[in-house]
């Protein structure tokens, strides 16, 4: 997987390059948007990470350049502005996702995974060792025993299972399971993770839901 990162702040570009590199992506960095369109045409990238505030040229212009040459190339926008209108403008301009600085690397990679597998059919049955979710019938079993979940617990578990072995940040979880405004509600993720733990991990030898300090939460069967 090859990713093009267009970001003028060298430190930010650097950690994105290193972080994504550690996850197995090969990353090219451009510090301005001047040649972005041309480079996207010549090299067969799988996705683009684009900062909106570039020197000289607005990120929206760069986005149009890229779209003009590669209409379906996934683009994740990175911005220092968090106004909801900005987000809407970015998505309207043809971006596939939108992220506000500062952000977690795991969030960037989660969003990249999402835009990269866009269009691919979602599996209807998810399995992590003996935990099984049937998304058609909306049932959850562990070790063959049916588990009754509340709607938010179910949505949270589905999000964790679709990102198995990948840590997820609280912000990402809130955005997927609730909506943006719930980020002001204290403990909303912790409380639901705890109740989910009681239902799927309690009484089993191998705990599946793990807290990654400083990062967020992770569903995995690998021992921590």
């Amino acid at each position: 997987m090859r990713i093009l990162v267009i970001e003028d702040d060298r430190k930010v570009a650097n950690f994105i390059q290193t972080g994504l590199g550690q996850e197995g992506y090969s990353v090219d960095v451009l510090n301005d948007g001047e040649d972005a369109g041309e480079q996207a045409r010549v090299i067969d990238y799988d996705a683009v990470v684009l900062d909106l505030m570039l020197p000289g040229r607005s990120g929206f212009q760069v986005l149009r350049d890229i779209r003009a040459r590669k209409a379906s190339l996934p683009v994740v926008i990175l911005t220092a502005k968090d106004a909801p209108e900005e987000r809407a403008t970015g998505l309207d301009a043809g971006a596939d996702d939108y992220m506000t600085k500062p952000f977690a690397l795991v969030e960037l990679s989660a969003r990249l995974r999402a835009v990269l597998r866009r269009g691919a059919p979602l599996e209807s049955v998810l399995r992590v060792v003996d935990l099984e979710m049937d998304t058609v019938h909306r049932t959850v079993r562990r070790g063959g025993m049916a588990i009754d979940l509340r709607p938010k617990e179910y949505a949270l578990l589905e999000f964790l299972m679709r990102n198995v072995d990948r840590p997820l940040t609280k912000a990402l979880i809130i955005e997927h399971v609730w909506d943006l405004h719930f980020d002001s509600v204290s403990n909303v993720v912790e409380v639901h993770i705890n109740s989910l733990r009681k239902k799927i991990d309690k009484g089993f030898n191998v705990p599946l839901i793990h807290t990654v300090r400083g990062i967020g939460y992770l569903l995995t069967d690998a021992p921590s």
């Binding site: 220092a80 500062p102 977690a104």
Partner: peptide, 14 residues
């Protein structure tokens, strides 16, 4: 504020 915070956070995360 956000850009240096992003750099700071990313480096610590690494």
């Amino acid at each position: 504020l956000r850009t240096p915070l992003a750099a700071l956070r990313g480096e610590i995360e690494l």
